[in-house]
């Protein structure tokens, strides 16, 4: 069975738990003691990922690191509908890749600020991280606003979310733990509410589900 080297409080691990849940793929979590045990930096774990980072998957002997890379792999392999990663559509692939790289920027800023505030990563320049996150959130908020105006619900065109949405979602939702309020980004808020109503959505600690009324309405549609 697919194995996910997993840590509950990691937004990057959460990206994969989300996609696996949306796709209904069974997997086994191998818990890594990221904090306080620092197990991802241990010599044993570096045999699995020399970068000493989570997440990693082991799919029948194929070992992959990097959340975005794994999203690409899982969606390509386990989504027969090809909607999460439309691999025959060059325009979509280009745009998805653009936003996957953008999601890495969110990790480098919003997630860094959270590590500083929540897990004693004192060497991080938290003010710079917060400012960087706000710059990215502004860009995404504007993008989503104009997308909505064009009748588009998701980051990339089409009527179905893609792995770009999954890649951006976790560290935006956890940003307040790093002292980054989202009150100035209404289009991001509407998009995240839509995201939470995707059938198969799961939470992680620090991310709350959409309200019950919203859940019922999504059931009615589904």
């Amino acid at each position: 069975m697919l194995k996910l080297y997993d840590y509950e409080l990691s937004g990057n691990c959460y990206k994969l738990r989300l996609l696996l849940s949306f796709l209904g793929v069974e997997y086994k979590s191998e818990l890594i003691d990221f904090y306080p045990g620092n197990q991802h930096k241990s010599p044993e774990f570096r045999q699995i990922n020399p970068l000493g980072q989570l997440p990693v998957i082991d799919d029948n002997g194929l070992v992959l690191r990097d959340a975005q890379a794994i999203l690409v792999y899982l969606a390509s392999k386990y989504d027969p509908s090809c909607k999460w990663y439309p691999r025959d559509n060059p325009e979509m692939l280009g745009q998805i890749s653009q936003w996957l790289a953008f999601a890495d920027g969110i990790t480098g800023t919003a997630s860094a600020a959270r590590l500083h505030d929540a897990l004693f990563y004192n060497h991080i320049d938290v003010e710079a991280a917060r400012a960087g996150a706000h710059r990215l959130f502004r860009v995404l908020d504007e993008h989503l606003f104009f997308a909505e105006e064009a009748g588009q619900d998701w980051i990339c065109p089409g009527d179905h979310p893609t792995i770009a949405d999954i890649a951006c979602f976790p560290y935006i939702m956890l940003s307040e733990e790093g002292g980054i309020p989202r009150i100035d980004y209404p289009a991001i808020r509407r998009w995240s509410d839509r995201f939470k109503r995707i059938p198969g959505f799961t939470v992680m600690s620090g991310v709350f589900p959409a309200g019950p009324a919203a859940k019922d309405s999504s059931k009615a549609v589904a």
Partner: peptide
């Protein structure tokens, strides 16, 4: 599992 469970629960309380 003990540490995982504690952190899961505590991180729900934190926000």
């Amino acid at each position: 599992d003990i540490r995982w469970f504690m952190q899961l629960i505590f991180a729900q309380d934190k926000p």
